Amino acid sequence: MDQSVVITLGFLVFAIIMFAWEKIPLSITAMIVAVGLHLTGVLSAKAAFAGFVDANVLLFMGMFIVGAAFFETGLAVEVGNLVTKVAKTETRLIIAIMMITGLLSGFLSNTGTAAVLIPVVIGICKKANFSQTRMMMPLVFAAAMGGNISLIGAPGNMIAQAGLQQAGLQGFEFFDYGKIGLPMLIVGTIFYATIGKRFLPATPSRTPDASYQGNDDYSHIPSWKKWIAGLVLVGTVAAMIFEKELGVKLYVSAWIGALILVATNVITETAAIVVGSSLAYATPIGMPANTMVYNIAGYSFMDYVKAGIPLIVVSMIVSLILLPILFPFHP
């Protein structure tokens, strides 16, 4: 009997047993079969997932689950606390906040990253007697800039990728966006650590939201869950970076990571979901993260205009310099 037939029958039996047994959610069983049939060479990635949705949607679904585990286990909070411990001055704190937020946002949900790090920064500001009003805006701007570090950093990146592929053109490599996005994050960080500090409001324009609570308590989360969440994130990103060498599509890697997290109960099936966009700095409604800190910090609409427009100008300058060099129209 042909090997592919044997493998297919094996997965069929597995699916029937698991559907009847219901020890793991039915949706997870279905995804295991789809991923397994592709990895064993029975079906191409496109054929294996043809019954689901667009590959780019699958990619984001998988990465949302991986990101959710990173956030919900409290690992993101620990990373934020660790990095910001070196921040003894306001300038250092701005640099630490923007770099860690930007780097995490390059591979996880921009909005999720901001949501988790906002209480971390508030706690640090209270302990060190820094103005949290001056720190919230750099945080959410860095979350937006971080979306331009990798192919999976923001929905717009994958929309462009899909458009190129549908036109039969060569798509972007995993870190092609980062050639522009990382310098943009670095320059933006330097800008707010120096000249841009004067554009950050020192005091709230409105009354801050007094009902906002601080960090959630993650002390009840077992350390093994944090380890698995971290290792799966690193492994998933590594698999995406070496997509061509491994011969595994980005969305397949994302779903392998997601399945591991659900199967090990690091994150539940029902908890396994938030999309932001890039360069929307100048208003409190430009992206979800901006809106998050609007009430918390007591900002006004004009606070975003004053602090955001200079960053847009800086970002445009960086882009206009690097784009023709790294991606020439006439190579």
Rank of each mutant, 00 (worst) to 15 (best):
Y251L: 12
T291S: 13
L164M: 14
L320F: 14
Y294V: 00
T101H: 04
L93G: 09
E22T: 05
G67V: 04
K249L: 05
I180V: 15
I100L: 01
K127E: 13
I241V: 15
M31Y: 08
I7Y: 13
G298R: 09
E245A: 14
S150K: 09
V57A: 14
A254S: 09
T283I: 03
K226I: 01
S300P: 07
M63A: 02
A143T: 07
S223D: 03
M98P: 12
I228C: 11
A282L: 02
E72P: 00
Y212D: 04
D54F: 02
V274W: 09
G181A: 10
H220S: 14
F172S: 11
T73D: 02
V33Q: 12
F329V: 15
G80L: 01
L108S: 01
S109E: 04
I309H: 03
G188D: 07
A48H: 10
Q132R: 11
Y212N: 10
F19P: 00
I190T: 04
K179C: 02
K85C: 00
A115P: 04
T101K: 08
M184Q: 13
I241Y: 13
A68W: 08
L323K: 15
M61L: 15
L246G: 02
Q161D: 10
W227S: 05
F19C: 01
M302P: 00
I7T: 13
E245S: 14
P222V: 06
G62S: 06
L26K: 13
S300L: 03
I195Y: 12
